[in-house]
Design a protein around this nucleic acid. Structure first.
Lengths: 192, 192
DNA sequence: GCCGGACTATGACAGATGTCATACTAGCGG
DNA sequence: CCGCTAGTATGACATCTGTCATAGTCCGGC
């Protein structure tokens, strides 16, 4: 039936994204993805004839649009939006996720870049695209807040850099304070 | 002879660190490490009875002390040291490395954290330790420049977060500008 | 009723992984 | 010369990987 069809396909994409967050690309086994997704193994071959690359690519794309949606959600929720508040909202959500999942999951995009930047250009491109998908709504929000477009581009990049790095350091330490730290320290730069 | 002994052992550690930078922990195969290091396969078993975990652990430790040495080198070279100049020096060196190696290699510590934070606590701890080894000389330099210790701790963490994140973004884009960007944008915060 | 397409099931494949057991070589001290 | 130890060599092990071939099931349309 078409409901389980869509169910299985997107379950696989979602579960792949989660595995990427846990163990990176190389550490993500398709058999485990299938079993954790509760999907039949045959669905892999059926929905993703492009193999693992296609699956990982779609997982990254999904992650990018999901992150973008979260950004827009935060923007909508803020009564008096400022760049630093937007950044704080994004960072806080990640910190809560790290806490809730005991630092087991990071950013799927970062994981893919680190694993594949030199070994798999298809995946690298997908990660790059996901990053841009994520960054765009941030840039737009900053423009909305009165920053010149050129400046907004720089600031959104700065935010993502600081966030990605803080995620790595936080997971290494098993301590979310680096996330709060970058949010706090970047505030004056973002709001200047 | 004892020269080749030391030679083989540290060659293996070094080569492992390089592979970590390329492909992460899971993507680093011991057979390839051995062959790229030009070392006999039997040496693995001989020098690293603890297996892959030990090898990766020592590679991370080596990377940490190497990075720390680079920091101290930069500090020594600066006539009128400021936090932002130190950060710029560190960042520039990474940017040059990315360029020279065509974005093929990132930070071994970040790679290990992302691959193993949830799957291998031994490696995660080694990565955490390496990060601290790296951060310490930065903190000390900042103290030397007149920052209160508490503040220096925060700033050194901020630097590493921004750097690690910029490395990921730069490798995704195959473009080093994010590195220069974080250096430039963080300057006022660092020097305040 | 039955044909055709979408989906699933399962097993096999070649290759790579980390680890271990075993045997070998060299060199040094007795 | 013998024995000991550090280092090397090599092959085998079980396990896991992604991929593919094949056959099966289900269901709507003719």
């Amino acid at each position: 039936m078409s409901s389980s069809r869509r169910g299985h396909r997107e379950r696989l994409v979602y579960e792949t994204a989660q595995q990427l967050r846990r163990a990176g690309v190389t550490g993500t086994g398709l058999r485990r993805v299938v079993s954790d997704a509760g999907a039949p193994r045959g669905s892999l071959q059926h929905y993703f004839p492009g193999g693992k690359d296609q699956l990982v690519g779609e997982a990254l794309q999904w992650s990018g649009t999901w992150a973008a949606a979260r950004v827009m959600h935060h923007v909508d929720r803020m009564r008096r939006p400022t760049p630093s508040r937007l950044f704080a909202a994004i960072v806080d959500e990640w910190a809560a996720d790290l806490d809730a999942r005991d630092f087991s999951r990071g950013c799927p995009v970062a994981a893919s870049v680190i694993d594949c930047a030199d070994t798999n250009d298809t995946v690298r491109r997908a990660a790059d695209a996901a990053l841009e998908t994520w960054r765009r709504p941030i840039t737009e929000a900053l423009v909305e807040m009165g920053r010149p477009r050129r400046r907004a581009e720089r600031l959104s990049t700065l935010m993502l850099c600081a966030l990605e790095g803080a995620l790595v350091v936080a997971r290494a330490r098993r301590d979310t304070t680096p996330l709060g730290l970058v949010a706090r320290e970047l505030a004056p730069v973002l709001d200047a």
